[in-house]
């Protein structure tokens, strides 16, 4: 898509034209924690096959935004659209809606959250069997295939505690992919890793992006945002401050708030 034109009349617009139908569409999403407004009127579109990076200072609401997409946090108002499914937050979310929504979404956490009492293979197979009803052989075939993709075939029988952080995160990615999501959500996937281990996770994410997966990535890795993501969203104080092609947002931020943030990130 070549609307990556450098003309950005309104840099805080993260939505596509109305005639395009995106895979993920958020309209006027708000989230309060008690009195505290964490997300303020977020509208955002993510197109199929797009890689979106969300950056911003801590406390800016970027993780909350991600967690609102798969309803780990329930938005207080607004609407969310993934594929053919629309959820309005004017009523408590129904179980059926939650199931249908999560079916389309895979999530990768900062702290991996593998199940420590199961082997790597069981970690990847159990969700397939319980959630998708796959037979054991089928689930194992999928798991082995994915382990090969993330370069960890030899770890199938190991327990998570015997894997490095980078390996655990790659296993967590395989576990999420095994359920055939349409969108992958990443919540600071490399923040708990040292740079070298982070790199092996980033390279898995890079090839995932190459394969056409739709990805929403909350990250502090500006190089990943710049090189891999199509668009970058800069958030502060619960609002989208800037959005646009990654190079533009990171290299030529228009708002003072974003300029301050990227200066700090670049250590200047």
């Amino acid at each position: 898509m070549d609307q990556a034109a450098s003309v950005r009349p309104d840099p805080s617009t993260a939505t596509l034209p109305e005639d395009v139908s995106p895979l993920v569409r958020m309209r006027h999403l708000c989230k309060w924690f008690g009195e505290h407004e964490v997300l303020r009127d977020i509208s955002l579109d993510v197109d199929s096959g797009e890689v979106l990076a969300i950056v911003g200072p801590s406390g800016s609401g970027k993780s909350t935004l991600l967690r609102c997409i798969n309803l780990l946090e329930e938005p207080s108002a607004g609407s969310l659209n993934v594929g053919e499914l629309t959820v309005e937050f004017d009523h408590p979310v129904k179980r059926r809606e939650r199931k249908a929504l999560r079916q389309q979404l895979g999530m990768v956490f900062q702290s991996f959250n593998l199940f420590p009492h199961m082997t790597v293979l069981e970690n990847i197979c159990l969700p397939q069997r319980r959630v998708l009803g796959r037979k054991r052989d089928e689930a194992e075939a999928v798991a082995k295939d994915l382990l090969e993709k993330v370069g960890l075939t030899d770890k199938a029988a190991a327990f998570p505690s015997n894997c490095s952080g980078g390996q655990q995160q790659r296993i967590a990615i395989a576990r999420a992919l095994a359920l055939d999501p349409r969108v992958m959500l990443f919540d600071e996937p490399t923040s708990a890793l040292d740079p070298e281990l982070g790199l092996e996770v980033l390279s898995v994410m890079f090839s995932l992006a190459q394969s056409g997966m739709t990805m929403i990535v909350v990250t502090h890795e500006m190089s990943f945002a710049e090189k891999v993501s199509d668009r970058t969203l800069f958030m502060a104080e619960g609002k989208i401050v800037e959005a646009g092609p990654s190079a533009d947002v990171i290299r030529r931020p228009q708002s003072e708030r974003a300029r301050r943030f990227f200066r700090a990130v670049n250590g200047l």
Binding site: M107, S111, N113, L114, F115, H117, A176
Partner: peptide, 30 residues
Amino acid sequence: VPKGQKEAAEALNFSSADSMRFVVFPQAAK
């Protein structure tokens, strides 16, 4: 049992019974 374990089960779309049976209970029992 760490909160992240329940969240992972939830994000993987486990039913709450499955989350208890396969994820939370075995770790709590230990």
